[in-house]
Amino acid sequence: MAQHPIFAKQAQKAKGFCAALLAVTGLAATTHAALAAPRHASATPPAPTAPSFTAEQADHGAQLYAGTCAMCHGAALEGAHDMPPLRGLFVARWANTPLNKLYAYITHAMPLMAPGTLPLQDNIDVMAFLLRENGTEPGHTPLPADENRLAQMVFPAPNALPPVKAAQPGKAPRTR
């Protein structure tokens, strides 16, 4: 059956519009892909580095932990009140994860009853404490508060850490 000339003309315009829309969409997608690609991309990303923090950061983090975190996670990081321990499975879960991810989690989700209320440097110091208490030795370079630099550091894997000594009553376990 033949189409009415008015409908045939509208169908022709619709086909032209669809073709133009597809062309513009394709051009936009190509342009976006070209702009998103790095201009001087290296063949391999830089290797992640071990975290570095100072003993002072970890000591300050221990004080913050005792006052802010221990009521839920336990004085010796053993977990309490349905909250997970911050050693063992915690280390396995965060192993080889860039520290900016842990930093973002702590910053936005902790403390549980008042998330995001700690100053950013306090969150860094709590991370330094967690690293130390899970076997990473302090160094001379502070753990940075810069998320881009934290993204280059990973939480050490359990097999990369020295064994943890057994806890004495009332004290958190420490490494050798």
Rank of each mutant, 00 (worst) to 15 (best):
A47H: 07
Q10C: 00
N96M: 04
N100M: 00
F53N: 01
L27H: 02
H60P: 00
A95V: 03
L77R: 05
P158T: 09
A166T: 05
G88A: 12
Q63I: 02
H140Y: 03
N159R: 13
P51F: 10
Q3F: 07
A62V: 03
L130K: 00
H32D: 12
P138F: 04
A37Y: 07
A29S: 10
M153F: 04
Y65D: 06
Q121V: 09
Q3E: 13
H4I: 04
M110F: 04
L143M: 10
T25K: 08
P138L: 03
V164C: 10
A14H: 01
L21F: 07
L77G: 01
R149Y: 09
A145G: 15
P142H: 10
A95L: 05
H108V: 05
I6F: 09
A157H: 05
L86H: 05
M110S: 04
P85Q: 13
Q10I: 12
A172M: 12
Q152S: 14
A50E: 11
G116C: 02
P48Y: 04
R132V: 00
F129Q: 01
P115W: 10
T49N: 03
A167T: 03
G135I: 02
P173H: 12
E147N: 06
N96W: 02
A19H: 06
H32S: 14
A34T: 05
T30F: 14
E78V: 02
L130Y: 02
L89P: 01
A55S: 10
Q57S: 04
I124A: 14
T136E: 01
P5S: 12
A76E: 12
M113L: 13
L150A: 10
A66G: 03
A151M: 08
G67H: 06
F53P: 01
P162G: 06
N96V: 08
T117R: 06
H108N: 15
L89D: 15
P84Y: 03
G74K: 01
P169K: 15
L64A: 09
D125K: 07
D59H: 09
G61F: 00
M153C: 03
P85L: 09
D146E: 13
I106T: 15
H81M: 11
R93L: 08
P162Y: 07
Q63H: 08
P138R: 04
D82E: 11
L120N: 07
L77F: 07
A172K: 12
L102M: 11
A128F: 00
P45F: 10
H4P: 00
L99R: 01
A34C: 07
Y103I: 01
L130D: 02
A109H: 11
T107A: 15
H4E: 14
F7A: 13
M127S: 05
A20Y: 03
P162R: 09
D59V: 02
Q152I: 03
P51Q: 10
N123G: 08
E133M: 09
A20V: 04
A145K: 08
A19T: 09
A172R: 15
T68K: 12
T25D: 12
C69G: 01
G61E: 07
K101W: 04
H40R: 06
A55C: 01
C69L: 10
A19M: 03
P158Y: 06
T44K: 10
P115M: 11
K9V: 08
H81L: 15
F17L: 09
F17E: 06
T141P: 00
I124E: 06
C72I: 02
T54R: 06
R39M: 05
G67E: 15
A36N: 11
T107K: 14
H32W: 15
